[in-house]
Structure formats: C-alpha cells, structure tokens
C-alpha cells in the first residue's frame, strides 16, 4: 500500500507545486502508515533520488523523452496502470493546469472518488474526509471519499514544502510503459519565461482600474520587481486589453492564494475577492476610504497609488539593500 504522488515538470524542472504535493503525500502516508512514492513521466535535469528529502521512498519514472509533453489521455492510462501495479490507495496531483487535465481522467478510469482543490490533509479519524475550496474561495466543503482508491488534487500554495533533515534518498525505479500515441497534436507552445507563474507565486502585486491606463503599469511592475513578485490585475483591466488575460484574477479568472497580495486601485468587488481572499496577507492601496476591499484587508493605505506605490518600491529596495 502506498500514496502515489504525480510529479509535474516542465523544461527539465520539477515544479514547485510538485514539491508541495510530495510533502503533502508524505505527510498523508505517515498518517496512514504506508509509504510515499512519486511518479514522474518523462525526463528532468536532476537526480530524482534527492526527492527523498520531501519524504518519498521511491520514485517511479518512465524516462521516455516522448512523455515530456503532457497528453492527458496518454498520461491517465499510464498513471492508472501504475496505480494498479504499485497497489497505491491514494493518488495525489497538484491542482494546476496539468493536474486539472489528468486527475479527473485517472479518477474516472479507476472509479476512484475525486476531490479537486484540496487545501488540507485528509481527516482519516472517521472515514476519509478532505477539505476543499468551494464557491470560488468564498467557503470550504468537507468531502468524504467513499471508494477504496482515492484521488486528491491539491491546490497550489495550500500546503508547505517540508524538507526532511539529513539526506533522505529515494529509490528510483524504472516504470515500463507502453505509451499509446497521443490523439492531440501540439502545434506550438509559448511560455512566458523568467516570470513566476501566477498560481505558484508567493508574492503578488495587482492593479485595477484605479491605475487609469496601461501606460501607468510601470509603478506596479517596479514594485513587483523589487519584491520578486508576480503581477496580476482585475477583470476590467484584462478586458480592456491593458494587461494580458492570464493575469486576470477573480471568480472568472485565476484563483490564487499567495502569502502576500497587494491590491492597488482595485475596489474589491465580490467577484474579485473570490479569487484572492485565500491570500495569507492582503494589502490594499486605494484613495477611497470606503472601498470595500479594506474590509478584506490586513494592512492598508488610504492614498493615491501614484504617490504611495513608488515610495513602497523605494522602501523595499532600501530594505533589501
């Protein structure tokens, strides 16, 4: 018996969300008294045995370069076969773009109960109950998985990466697979390089309509750069083409849960809050003291963004030397 953790990677790198999933899976394995094992399809530029630091005992790897690109249908079959072969009872995915594509397929294929968007370890005292976000982050549900095999997709930034002491080393085992030909052909892919993906970012600086126009985004970018943060925006900002669509957060955009969310010139409409209210610390900069966002904030400045934000950037730079 084991907990099997899907290790997502791109461009030769294991993603941060995979380390979160590994840490979560290892803690769950400890709770259940079984071993934590990783599964990685494709190749990465690191020694996989070092993933033992996050608690994995074994890493099953299908080291075929053809698998470096994720095809949901191909992956689901391989993972489902591996679940059966390894006798895993729980499968963990990061609930990122890859997890959203593959986890439901694996669950349906194996008739396993699925909870996607998990934010905490399962309660196994009485059954198997997992806490997840619902209503776009406005509430949580406790969902019971009533099947012998369970699939959990863990929300990014919901579980801390835990590195064990010493040199935990995982055994790397070759996974023999007969990969089927993908039915989806990838024509091209673009990746914003050098940027932190919004869903993985720990610090986020976000701008709204209060910034008046795209030409004023310099102050947002400067603050983000000084902090090493990702940038985001409200929906009307993306709709007006001031910022790219993938920066739009909220109920109809991306839901994020960074450690710090700085909202600048954003009123705090309920649909915006839905996507960001799980941030650990919320800072609001708005010239209107009545802006609803202040009710959801931990820290705030009532003031003009064009005056306040550059001074914040200066202070960050000073602090970081």
């Amino acid at each position: 018996m084991s907990v099997l953790i899907f290790i997502d990677h791109s461009e030769g790198q294991v993603k941060k969300v995979s380390l979160e999933a590994l840490s979560y899976g290892a803690a769950l394995a400890g709770q259940l008294g079984v071993s934590a094992e990783g599964i990685l399809l494709g190749t990465v530029g690191m020694d996989l045995s070092t993933l033992g630091r996050f608690g994995a005992k074994k890493i099953h790897q299908a080291a075929q370069e053809g698998l470096n690109h994720l095809d949901a249908q191909v992956y689901a079959k391989i993972i489902a076969d591996a679940v059966t072969a390894t006798g895993a009872t729980v499968v963990i995915f990061p609930n990122n773009f890859s997890g959203k594509a593959v986890a439901p397929r694996v669950a349906a294929r194996l008739k396993a109960g699925l909870v996607s968007g998990a934010v905490a370890l399962p309660d196994t005292a009485n059954g198997f109950v997992v806490k997840k976000t619902v209503f776009s982050g406005k509430a949580f549900a406790h969902v019971a998985l009533n099947t012998p095999l369970k699939v959990i997709a863990l929300n990014p930034n919901s579980y801390p990466i835990r590195e064990g002491e010493g040199s935990g080393s995982a055994e790397v085992v070759a996974l023999s697979v007969t990969a089927t030909a993908p039915k989806v052909k990838v024509v091209s892919a673009t990746q914003a390089t050098g940027e932190v993906p919004l869903t993985e970012a720990e610090l986020v600086v976000s701008g709204g309509r209060g910034l008046k126009g795209p030409e004023n985004w310099g102050i947002i970018e400067d603050l983000a750069k000084a902090l090493g943060a990702a940038t985001a925006c409200s929906r009307p900002v993306a709709d007006s083409g001031w910022r790219p669509h993938h920066e739009h957060v909220g109920q109809t955009g991306i839901a994020i849960a960074p450690n710090l969310y700085i909202a600048i010139g954003i009123s705090g409409a309920i649909q915006h809050l839905a996507g960001v209210n799980r941030s650990k610390v919320i800072v609001v900069i708005n010239k209107d003291p009545e802006a609803p966002f202040f009710k959801a904030a931990d820290y705030g400045i009532v003031g003009d963004a064009f005056e306040v934000v550059p001074k914040m950037t200066e202070a960050v730079k000073k602090l970081k030397g």
Partner: peptide, 25 residues
C-alpha cells in the same frame, strides 16, 4: 463516489491596520 459532509465559512478578518499615506516605508 463522494459526498459532502459539511461546509465551512472562512474565519472573518481581524480588521485592517491602516498606515498613514505619507509613510509607505
């Protein structure tokens, strides 16, 4: 295969700490 046992609302925020606009540092 699954059932919702219960719901929960997030804890209310303690309230915002306001910093004067002339002191972003």
């Amino acid at each position: 295969l699954t059932s919702i046992v219960s719901f929960e609302l997030p804890p209310a925020k303690a309230g915002v700490k306001l910093i004067p606009a002339d002191n972003p540092a």
